[in-house]
Design a protein around this nucleic acid. Structure first.
Lengths: 298, 298
DNA sequence: GTCAATTACGTTCTCCGTAAGGATG
DNA sequence: CATCCTTACGGAGAACGTAATTGAC
């Protein structure tokens, strides 16, 4: 039905309409005059309409030509806008990258990366959501963010993931606790301690359970949802907890001590999760994040 | 700046976006699968953007691809609308023809022609202005009409004109006038009559002056602007007049006699005047008018 | 092993520039 | 006769199809 019209044909016709002169219009299109003539004929054939009245001395558009030239201008403008827009996105002069990240990373590692990215690509809007891992995943699933920096979860299966870095565990206890003085603690040191747990659904809890296989602790019976609660419980002498380094900021204001585990213990991986296709802008951000925050890089 | 994008490329990409499958999309475009693959690559190269993520097993658009496919759909829709519209005009399924014609022709010859035209091309709007020759010319110059059927005028030089037919002169007189009985009158018969004149600016007057060269008439001193006035003057016995047949309708209601001039006398030509370019619809009307009303035809 | 996209390659067609032709003022 | 659009023609490059290749499941 629709004939094969190219932007070149339209540009040629618009040039002719502007110049009303084959030779000059041909120059404007960087074509020989005869090639240009052929282009116009091809357009007329494709549209099955005479667009130009040739008088060998005068060039004038037919009524249908006048009608079509306005359409052609519109189409070319649309094309140019579309191409420019796409080109802007590819060149990262435009666009948006939304990131969801665990609060600690959002507060510590990411700001520098975002600043660097914005300096390079000031036209790209960067959005940052600080959220706990569940919420990160939710935002990713909703398509609200392009990248999520979060802890592992079974529900990440539908996304592409890669390990960004890993997060060592710390023992958090009161200043007067027996282990508070040590520079590092062994898992065996925890034998007999009362451990305060997070809910079984959390990835932290699952890691801790794995770490503590074979170590006998006293059952505190305390299993709560929020780290702030954990902190309060510890502060009141109800036990100790094992938490990843990136959550320690939740304990900072209190008079508690965080002691790193001895080297060689499994750490909680921090993942970069993303949908299977990324915008150019998001891919750039991904690369920068891996470069600056990845285990390999800085 | 703008790369050469053709509707074929856009259609191919839209087909791919719809099918998410090279082979099926290729079929839809009536291309071999390899040619289709090349088309997509060409589009990507032209836009300098990766539009499709190929997995050999899965085809999925990139973010930029999703962005562009909507644009492509819009462009194609615009093209199709533009092409359809143009095509409608060329096929005379749409359009407008406006005609200005002398009242007598508008009332007598044209209605049948217009009816025939509308039966053939019911989508084309036909507008008819009945107007005296000056007004016809004015409408033509304003671009309000495509065709004018009118009497000669020096100011028609800027337009294309062709003779449609010619308009013989009649003597108009009272029933009791000496010449009222004759079946035809010779110019010499008018010798000694009092001739009532139209203003010198009118084409009728110029014709009459040419006809009457060498015939001596009595000077009535009456020179008026409107034929209705001429009629009134004749009715009251103040003279006679020579007028073209197509103006006789202005005398019909009165008790006057119109006698044709003897054969062989110059007649007033009736012209078809038009701008140098005509729409397809107007050209069709022009041809029909010449066929039905022209001296050669019906 | 099969399905599906890409690459390889030869044919055909299109596009383009040079040059000759023809119409107009 | 000078201008300017069209036609003629030949070579370079693009487009296409067939067939071989690669890759994923």
């Amino acid at each position: 039905m629709l004939p094969n019209i190219s932007s070149k044909l339209l540009q040629a016709f618009v040039a002719l309409a502007d110049c009303r002169h084959f030779t000059r219009a041909a120059e404007r299109c960087h074509l020989s005059q005869s090639a240009f003539s052929a282009v116009i004929q091809k357009l007329e054939a494709a549209l099955n309409a005479k667009l130009v009245e040739r008088d060998t001395r005068n060039v004038m558009l037919t009524v249908e030509g006048e009608m079509f030239v306005e359409v052609a201008r519109g189409l070319l403008a649309d094309m140019e806008a579309a191409f420019g827009n796409l080109s802007d996105h590819v060149a990262r002069r435009k666009g948006r990258v939304a990131i969801a990240a665990l609060p600690s990373l959002a507060a510590n590692g990411l700001p520098a990366v975002i600043a660097e990215y914005r300096a390079s690509y000031p036209g790209v809007k960067v959005q940052l959501h600080d959220a706990l891992s569940d919420q990160c995943l939710h935002l990713l699933r909703q398509g609200k963010v392009d990248l999520a920096i979060t802890a592992p979860s079974a529900r990440l299966a539908e996304f592409d993931t890669r390990v960004l870095c890993s997060d060592p565990f710390y023992l958090v206890c009161r200043r007067d606790h027996a282990l508070a003085r040590k520079r590092r603690v062994q898992l065996a040191d925890l034998a007999g301690c009362e451990l305060i747990h997070l809910a079984k659904s959390t990835s932290v809890r699952q890691h801790v359970d794995r770490l503590m296989q074979g170590v006998v602790v006293r059952d505190s019976g305390l299993e709560v949802e929020h780290l702030a609660t954990v902190a309060g419980l510890i502060e009141h002498g109800l036990g100790v907890a094992l938490v990843p380094a990136l959550t320690l900021f939740q304990f900072k204001k209190l008079d508690l001590v965080a002691v790193p585990l001895a080297a060689g213990q499994p750490e909680r991986p921090i993942l970069l999760a993303m949908p299977r296709t990324l915008s150019v802008a998001a891919r750039g951000m991904l690369e920068l994040i891996e470069l600056r925050l990845g285990s390999g890089g800085g």
